[in-house]
Design a binder for these strands. Sequence first.
DNA 1: TTGTATGCGTTATCAA
DNA 2: TTGATAACGCATACAA
Lengths: 336, 336
Amino acid sequence: MAVQGTRRPTLAGVAERAGVSLKTASRVLNGEPNVAEATRERVREAATALGFRRNAVAADLARGGASRLLGFISGDIANPFYSALASGIERVARDNDLQLITTSCDEDPERERLLTEELLERRVGGLVVTPTTGDHARLAGELAAGTPVVFVDRPASGLEADTVVIDNRGGIRAAVRHLSYHGHRKIAFVGDNPEVWTFRERRAAFLDVMDELGNRDAQRWVRSGAHDAREARSLVAGLLDGPEPPTAVLAENNRVTAGALRALADVAGGERIALVGFDDFDLADLLGVTVVSYDAVEMGRRAAELATSRYDPATPPRTVTLETRLIPRGTGERRL
Amino acid sequence: MAVQGTRRPTLAGVAERAGVSLKTASRVLNGEPNVAEATRERVREAATALGFRRNAVAADLARGGASRLLGFISGDIANPFYSALASGIERVARDNDLQLITTSCDEDPERERLLTEELLERRVGGLVVTPTTGDHARLAGELAAGTPVVFVDRPASGLEADTVVIDNRGGIRAAVRHLSYHGHRKIAFVGDNPEVWTFRERRAAFLDVMDELGNRDAQRWVRSGAHDAREARSLVAGLLDGPEPPTAVLAENNRVTAGALRALADVAGGERIALVGFDDFDLADLLGVTVVSYDAVEMGRRAAELATSRYDPATPPRTVTLETRLIPRGTGERRL
DNA sequence: TTGTATGCGTTATCAA
DNA sequence: TTGATAACGCATACAA
């Protein structure tokens, strides 16, 4: 048992106690072959007696190259979406004997840059990033140096790199068609900030499908700027209170869905207004909300697989697109 | 720009290019004083020209002692409770210039042990653990060696160490009294497995308060074994379907609450049965569920503060108990 | 203000 | 089957 003040036992200490050289002790403790069984036993005993625990920091340095660490830069780890990503990444990390460093950049480009730098200083063997709107060209050198940098949920700007996204357009298409099939024409699209890539993708798809369905002026049904549930609530409230209230609301993400639900609960007859949300959420079944669902854990897993697979920087970047799935609950209208 | 195959630029390289010694380059790049401004400038230029990025692995090894890493062993990072903890820990880590390694042990003692070992090999400067039921006496030596190990949400067994918990008993007391105040006598307590410390605490409090209120036989209202929402649903369904259905259900955690909600939705008149849940959750307001709430992010923060504050292993372990808060929504009965 | 020398605890090379 | 010795890249007494 180590005691405070006392140094921790080292491999050299184990070797000395076992009466062998450093290299032999190393061989034994790393399970390498070509060591006599008797020697092996003596080293093991010495290690246990001293309470030896290998120093992974020293090992990483000696080995050279990357450390056995993987980096993940999320927007906010407390957000269920990001923690689902983290969960998928973690599993792949585990399978590859890597430890995962998680960080949150609060959607702040400058903070993302700082975190990237810190993780690269740690010589991570791979980096998974949910990119903010900033430019990522600065990472070109690192990519060329062989560090796999993978972007997830949205692509980086100014850089060609491996990317994992979902089929946003397909998801929106399914949602709008679902509502249309159930007779809705006045469909409002409520979302986050237009700076966000996913918002733009989803809005574009919304306009496309509405156009295909004969609604050439869908732009007037679009509302943006709802970054949290509270803002979404007032945005939807405004729609319902306006001159031409929609009969259906398409919420661009789960925060908007939550806000929309509250707005609908606030007005008389709100339960007769249909609601479809992008992103599934807990208890959506109870609230009878039809959603566009996808597997965020799988998304993390795929990203981590790209980030851990050794690759040739010369090969063109890969893009993985995951499918979405419409989960109809009722007829698009909520049944409370 | 580094190119693949090429080694990464080192401090020595920067020093050489700037025509100074290693130590001087180190001084400049670490912002230490006592360097001529001209020298400083030359070193900076050399660093930029070479695309130098310090190697944190080497720095940690050279500095000796612990690495600038913090470890967190959660049950499952995809679980909102654990990711809230992670969020709090992450903020403290950031403030202390530490990087956070997050792991999930899936509530498996053996896996927790393995993860602990791996993190200690990484020489983490602190370790936050949500302990499983296994014994933790093996960590005594590490504690004595000066690594702050902090347990959060429940105490470790077989080891005296810093711990952060919430006031489970107070929370249950408030919940039962709330229901009692609103006229309920037949209150069922539905929870997870009795192996889980928090369950035992909460059940004990439930029985105490029921006893105080004159219900001496509350044991028959206790149901356990609901580890997920599905199991909770059938457990509650069984209660409602039994010979003497309760008029109120106290759910021991948010998974049970979700299951109970579904069970109540399944039966006629279910909306007249009161429900109070331990743990607040998203959209609880919409569903009209009264809850016992507490701040999981704060819990993580407090744990991380204990794990980062240098302390004397000789001082007795500290226990931080965080308050809970009853959030009444309606009269304890749901208003849908 | 600047530099020299040594150590951190491993892994890896190459020889014995 | 084993071992001596040199990296790995930086920090830090101590000197100049």
